[in-house]
């Protein structure tokens, strides 16, 4: 099966898997075996739930479909290393059953399954999911980690006070309290370049998100470059932009709609973080922007057709044809319903 970027789905998922495995390894190095246990549990539950759901829906399982693995890894990277085991399990089940399989399985999701799973448990159990252990500190293996070992994230401090008590080098290597796999900015930048070069994430959307949100934060913070760095590296923002919003599975089809989608996600992230003081604003922004993808494609298509009727030329190419086919299928499904 080929994706919108022309690469095979398996190839994209393999690229994501490689990068996420590196992040998982760094997370285990920082937080120890407790982190490994949470990662293995989340990934395992995602895979088992996906398999069971597919069987219950009486569909065929695809051997090289590792989307559940990717979802599990992405989700676990957003959790704190101290996350109670049952909460990680609940998040994984919710992500797969409600956000993925209920919409028709891989390729048919409207929302990023990992983002939805994370939002669900962060709203249900904020006291456990939005408090974090200190890196290089031994975390007990019990399901509930004593609350005196946990503290608020650096993002929260940044949102409430407008500054973070972390130096730039510490920021780059993720030496601050936060989710276990989203704070290693240096690794994330390399990952972003690798994935963009491999065309596994949309370069247009990612660039638009980074530019729009970067410029907005720079202006809103009174031209403070440190605030921009903290905004991207100090929490989930950069990770979310790469793995939640720009993955090719969740992208609109045309370049123009990808650009608009990137602007939308970037703008929403800044708005949510600065005006509603939302921690992990990128996750909310991704979920809010997701339904607009189809509409953006629809607008791009009608615009291209308008140009064609006026000037006799069909602007766009393969991607627009792909949009047309997709929209035709959607319309046909609606009619059948």
């Amino acid at each position: 099966m080929y994706s919108k970027s022309g690469k095979t789905e398996t190839s994209i998922m393999t690229d994501m898997l490689i990068v996420l495995t590196v992040l998982a390894a760094v997370a285990v190095y920082y937080y120890g075996l407790r982190a490994a246990l949470v990662i293995v549990l989340t990934v395992g539950v995602c895979c088992v739930t996906d398999f069971v759901s597919i069987k219950l829906r009486k569909k065929d399982t695809v051997i090289n479909d590792i989307s559940a693995l990717i979802t599990g890894l992405t989700l676990s990277m957003m959790l704190p290393a101290s996350a109670p085991y049952y909460e990680a399990v609940i998040a994984a089940i919710f992500a797969i059953v409600i956000a993925k399989q209920a919409f028709g399985g891989h390729g048919c999701e409207i929302f990023n399954a990992a983002a939805v799973g994370f939002l669900f448990i962060s709203l249900c159990f904020p006291e456990n999911i939005l408090t974090y252990p200190v890196y290089f500190e031994k975390i007990p293996f019990s399901s509930l980690v004593p609350s005196d070992m946990l503290k608020s994230s650096m993002t929260k401090l940044f949102i409430t006070t407008g500054s973070a008590s972390v130096s730039i080098p510490e920021l780059m290597v993720g030496k601050f309290s936060g989710p276990m796999g989203t704070g290693f900015a240096a690794v994330l930048v390399v990952a972003a370049v690798f994935l963009m070069l491999r065309r596994s994430v949309s370069a247009i959307a990612l660039s638009a998100e980074v530019v729009v949100s970067g410029v907005a934060v720079f202006l809103l913070s009174g031209f403070d470059f440190n605030s921009v760095l903290t905004f991207f590296a100090g929490g989930m923002t950069l990770f979310g932009m790469i793995f939640l919003s720009c993955e090719n599975t969740y992208m609109p089809n045309t370049r123009s709609s990808r650009l608009l989608y990137g602007i939308l996600v970037g703008g929403l992230t800044v708005l949510l973080q600065y005006y509603s003081k939302t921690e992990n604003a990128i996750v909310y922004a991704v979920v809010i922007a997701a339904p607009f993808r189809i509409e953006l494609d629809r607008r791009a298509l009608s615009f291209a057709e308008m140009l064609k009727s006026k000037h006799g030329a069909f602007f766009g190419n393969k991607s627009l044809k792909h949009v047309k086919e997709t929209l035709d299928i959607l319309d046909k499904n609606d009619e059948e319903k």
């Binding site: 049952y86 609940i90 669900f120 709203l123 249900c124 159990f125």
Partner: peptide, 9 residues
Amino acid sequence: PVIFSVFAE
């Protein structure tokens, strides 16, 4: 054993 407070919202 587990309360999903989000459902009250």
